[in-house]
Design a protein around this nucleic acid. Structure first.
Length: 816
RNA sequence: GCCUGGGUGGCGAAACUGGUAGACGCGCCGGAUUCAAAAUCCGGUUCCUUUGCGGGAGUGUCGGUUCGAGUCCGACCCCAGGUACCA
């Protein structure tokens, strides 16, 4: 054994051995219960950054730990290859997106291999390959035929100078990032998938998902946003039309003093025809982005129209306003306003001198002063005619009944969740397999003509998608009537690819249909690891897609991810890595200098998985030092002859080391398997190594105890630092592969201690420590506590009022 | 704005079920080794006070519950993620 730890040599050897035995290649016939371990696949942005190192190391730790526990583990890797950055690179550097993407994949794959992840590379694919997106197109048409796909108008960010649609990210301070022209809201026909049909199931199932963090379930619940309320019709005066609004507070209906509609609402457009001021206001409303955060923080503005509606219960005439905070995308694009009992309406009414009427009074001691703010709590109805005196709950029902009786309203369940808009006006994505025919309208591409292949030999002229001007792509015969027609040039949202890739990994070569029987063995994913930034969108779309696939008989079960581990962000300059500029996050130079094990150990040791932290190289030296010490510890030990030992005949010091060994084993098992906290596993192994260092073995039996401790340390650290563990395992004379070696049982007898230290508090402050026999009775403990010197001083001349004993932990003596 | 997290020494953190706050590591200080340095090894290291024993304060801020609060409750401040076209 070399006395110097050389990570480059050790790591090359270990990796060669894994490649040779193909120990990470997964098959359905493997021994043990199946375990599908998956980290969210990366977007090939260029080089790995420390955020990637973190997520893939964490997943690999779980992978390797599960193998030690006897599972048949599958851990694949692939590439989420479509996306905006490839197009930006193409526009900037004139490199075709396909080439840019392929180069990035090659570089990142090499880096991943260098990190020693136990991946089954035979399953690798990139989503930009026609063999993959073929099935996405196929499935989309299936869903179209099923009525779960439809087309409607929806708002986009329009850059009037570049004549193109911008992503929210490409809008900076309301201006296009390249043109710097103010963006406009513009409506366009787009494809949608009916995720709202599954809203109830997506919501209700969260309650059963024990393997998901509460915070993520809570975010998804709020995002889906189920609410019970009433849909109310306000007849439009001078027309047969009705203005329909939704409210969760019909108890406040009598207090409605106006209604407000979105700028794109037909009533607003009608009003604009007669009133240039309204027309001008509507134009101004278009000078905004589509981002909800911008809209929610925007100054609330509006303009009155001459139109009025009739209050459905009082018959009173209410003015119709056009307001910038009402959005056509949400519900019906209209709201009723009750300024007395809704804070936003109150502020709006104050600003524009609209009457504020109180129709709810508090029943408890809440303050209510409509001069100061709206009263938004539930209470008792007043100024509401026949409904006066009812509680809000009863008023809700009485008013809903009255509306239903007049056929001007109905109780409904409303969801905040909106249907999934999947159209993107971009080049580097999966072509939407639809054809536009002048005679037949929209016609799906026939199954036999799939896939619609994205041409990769393209040049960017300006910023618009090359597809829009590529005649060879555009021109196609209508599959229905045979006349000349045109292809859809929009591509899919990239969340489409990431919504089912994890099923495809089970059978990456399946070619009819999208997945085969192997998917039923591997899916669902048993442990899914990824960044917290995906808590809502990706995970919700993937859950939805899995249900769609279930309903097609392609997968079994209702949910795609049994256990979910959400990682905090690795920050750089206070920002998430994928957003920060430069390549300071590139791990390459760290791998060259310290090796993969040190990088992996430092990353795992830095923080618990769910916590965000600022990456710093400071921990690398420490990790490297630890690995060197570990190496030397084993080397020194091997100079001695280790013999067998009888646990009951060990010296006190040797028994203490054995106890530490088995405590470490127990703690690590709990941290790996239950708590999913790996920084403390590293600490535990460091502590064990420190105790081995401090132990002075005198006999062959003592060396045997050290051997057991080192063997345990190697096994426990192996999921985190697998290369050095592979080498030291062999050095310690083990001939079986460490990958998948059975995790040893804890010797409970080794954990038993004769006495424990207890803390003695007086009035909650620590005043002494006592050594007592384990599980000593209360009287013995109290006697020892009161007799301890410093404690006795604090008890002197005081009256003992209370004695609290927490067995084997502490005593608290309360004096007055 | 709204939803979800987070805030503990000089720094990364630990404290799992309300029971010794700061394990483990980084950094720093002192020592050994060395001609010297690097590397390595040993010791110390929350702050204030004390020669020492000890005493006091302390987990973002303010308040509460409790024998006892980093942990539970209420209000607030700051930071991060998401906010439907970044992925």
């Amino acid at each position: 054994m070399s006395t110097v730890y050389d990570p480059q040599a050790v790591e090359a050897d270990a990796q060669a051995s894994w490649n040779e035995t193909e120990c990470f290649r997964a098959t359905e016939s493997g021994d043990g219960e199946k375990f599908y371990c998956l980290a969210m696949f990366p977007y090939p942005s260029g080089r790995l950054h420390m955020g990637h190192v973190r997520v893939y190391t964490l997943a690999d730790v779980i992978n390797r730990y599960r193998r030690l526990k006897g599972y048949n583990v599958m851990q694949p890797m692939g590439w989420d290859a479509f996306g905006l950055p490839a197009e930006n690179a193409a526009i900037k550097n004139q490199i075709p997106p396909a080439k840019w993407t392929d180069d990035n994949i090659d570089y990142m794959r090499t880096q991943m291999k260098r990190l020693g992840f136990g991946l089954d590379w035979s399953r690798e694919f990139a989503t930009c390959e026609p063999e993959y997106y073929h099935w996405e197109q196929w499935f989309f048409i299936k869903m179209y035929e099923k009525g779960l796909v439809y087309r409607k108008n929806s708002v986009v960010n329009w850059d009037p100078v570049d004549q193109t649609v911008l992503a929210n990210e490409q809008v900076v301070d309301g201006k296009g990032w390249r043109s710097e022209a103010p963006v406009e809201r513009r409506e366009m026909a787009q494809w949608f998938m009916k995720i709202t049909d599954y809203a109830e199931e997506l919501l209700d199932e969260l309650d059963e998902m024990d393997g998901w963090p509460e915070s993520v379930k809570s975010m998804q619940r709020n995002w889906i946003g189920r609410s019970e309320g009433v849909e109310i019709d306000f007849p439009v005066n001078g027309s047969d039309e009705k203005l329909t609004v939704f409210t969760t507070r019909p108890d406040t209906l009598i207090g409605a003093t106006y209604v407000a509609v979105a700028a794109e609402h037909p009533l607003a457009e009608q009003a604009a025809e007669d009133d240039p001021d309204v027309a001008q206001f509507i134009e101004r409303c278009k000078q905004a982005t589509t981002a909800e955060a911008d809209l929610a923080m925007m100054e609330k503005e509006g303009i009155a129209t001459l139109a009025t509606v009739e209050h459905p219960l009082t018959g009173e005439s209410l003015p119709v306003w056009v307001a910038n905070f009402v959005l056509m995308e949400y519900g019906s694009g209209a709201v009723m306003s009750v300024p007395g009992h809704d804070q936003r309406d109150w502020e709006f009414a104050r600003k524009y001198d609209i009457p504020i009427v109180q129709v709810i009074e508090p029943v408890g001691d809440e303050s209510c002063d409509l001069e100061v703010e709206a009263f938004v709590e539930y209470g008792r109805l007043l100024n509401s005619g026949d409904f006066d005196g009812l509680t809000s709950e009863d008023g809700f029902n009485a008013i809903a009944d009255a509306l239903e009786a007049k056929n001007l309203g109905r109780r409904i369940t409303n969801y905040r969740l909106r249907d999934w808009g999947v159209s993107r006006q971009r080049y580097w994505g999966c072509p939407i397999p639809m054809i536009h025919c002048d005679d037949c309208g929209v016609v799906p591409v026939p199954e036999s003509d799939l896939p619609v292949v994205l041409p990769t030999d393209v040049t960017f002229e300006g910023v618009r998608s090359p597809l829009t001007t590529m005649e060879s792509f555009l021109n196609v015969d209508c599959p229905r009537c045979g006349k000349a027609a045109r292809r859809e040039t929009d591509t899919f949202d990239t969340f489409m690819e990431s919504s089912w890739y994890f099923v495809r990994f089970a059978c990456p070569d399946a070619n009819s249909p999208m997945v085969d029987e192997r998917a039923k063995y591997w899916a669902p994913v048993d442990h899914y690891v990824g960044g917290i930034e995906h808590a809502i969108l990706h995970l919700l779309y993937a859950r939805f897609y899995y249900k769609l696939m279930r309903d097609e008989g392609l997968v079994v079960g209702d949910e795609p991810f049994k256990r979910l581990m959400m990682l905090g962000m690795v920050l750089q300059d206070g920002k998430k890595m994928s957003k920060s500029a430069g390549d300071a996050g590139d791990p390459q130079k760290l791998l060259d200098r310290y090796g993969a094990d040190a990088v992996r150990t430092a990353m795992m040791f830095a923080a618990p998985p769910d916590q965000s932290f600022e990456w710093s190289e400071a921990g690398l030296e420490g990790a490297m030092r630890f690995l060197k010490r570990f190496w030397t510890l084993v080397g020194d030990h091997l100079e001695n002859e280790a013999g067998p030992f009888e646990p009951s005949e060990l010296s006190e010091a040797a028994a203490a080391l054995r106890r530490k060994t088995h405590e470490t084993l127990k703690r690590a098992d709990d941290d790996y398997g239950r708590r999913f906290q790996f920084n403390t596993v590293v600490s535990a192994v460091m502590e064990l190594c420190n105790e081995i260092r401090d132990f002075k073995p005198a006999t062959a039996a003592d060396h045997g105890v050290v051997r057991e401790a080192l063997r345990t340390a190697v096994l426990v650290i192996s999921p985190i630092a697998p290369h050095i563990a592979h080498e030291l395992w062999g050095q310690l004379g083990e001939t079986d592969s460490l990958v998948g070696y059975p995790w040893p049982a804890v010797d409970e007898a080794a954990l038993v201690q004769a006495s424990v230290e207890m803390v003695v508090q007086v009035n909650g402050k620590v005043r002494g420590k006592i050594e007592v026999p384990t599980d000593a009775d209360q009287a013995t403990v109290l006697d020892l506590a009161k007799g301890s010197e410093n404690v006795a001083r604090h008890l002197k001349d005081k009256t003992l009022r209370k004695e609290i004993v927490v067995p084997n932990k502490l005593v608290n003596l309360v004096v007055g």
